[in-house]
Amino acid sequence: MNIRKLGAREELPIGLLLEADPSEQLVRGYCADGHCFIAERQGAVIGVFVLVALDPDTTEIKNIALAEPERGKGLGKRLVFAALEEAKNLGFSVAEIGTGNSSLAQLALYQKCGFRMKSIDRDFFTRHYEEPIFENGLQCRDMVRLDCRLR
């Protein structure tokens, strides 16, 4: 798996980005404000993450997604660690990430990668998304925010 910054003239892998965030408007907005990185294998995009500065010291991983056929192979963890390394390379000392209260696998993955729970933004998903989101038999309502020290 090769990871590189998406070129300015390259199209966003919008289908993959929408797997992690169902709002195309929000996705396009934060991709325009941040740094989009893609993971490729044999010329095919298999993963993506977007880093957006929150302040001079802190970046947020706004979106991270792996193509369905690539899941369950340990590549998600490699993608998270690559995002943390790129954040360090960009000069950030803290990385944050948010996920839904119903995203059980993601919550476990992020903690395995060194993130710690920071806060909960209650009703984030009901405020920002018109359609209800359901996952793992639960309604996704709250944003669970985690952070990781990079230095």
Rank of each mutant, 00 (worst) to 15 (best):
G137D: 09
G34Q: 10
G7T: 04
L18Y: 07
E19L: 09
D147K: 14
G43A: 08
R71H: 01
A65M: 01
S119G: 11
L104A: 04
C140G: 07
L18Q: 07
Y30S: 10
F37P: 04
K118M: 12
A83T: 06
L6T: 05
I120D: 00
R116W: 03
G47E: 10
G29P: 02
E60T: 09
L107T: 03
L84V: 01
G74P: 08
A53M: 11
E68K: 09
L84F: 07
K62M: 11
S93Q: 10
D121M: 05
R4F: 05
L12Y: 09
R141P: 03
Y129S: 09
L109V: 08
E10M: 09
T126V: 15
F124W: 08
R122M: 01
V144T: 06
I61L: 10
A105R: 13
G7P: 03
S103E: 05
A108Y: 07
E131R: 14
D121T: 03
Y30W: 08
I61N: 03
L104N: 08
D121F: 03
L84Y: 00
C140A: 14
K62V: 00
K5D: 03
G137I: 04
V27N: 11
V94E: 12
R41I: 02
G100Y: 02
F134Y: 14
G98C: 05
T58G: 14
L16D: 00
L66T: 04
G137E: 07
F81P: 00
R78C: 13
D121E: 14
P56F: 07
A8K: 11
E19R: 11
T99F: 10
F49L: 05
I3R: 02
C31A: 13
A82F: 00
F134Q: 09
L109A: 10
H128R: 07
E24D: 11
L90F: 09
N101I: 00
L16Y: 01
H128Q: 11
Q111M: 11
D33A: 15
I46L: 13
S23Y: 08
N63I: 00
E131T: 13
Q111A: 09
R78M: 11
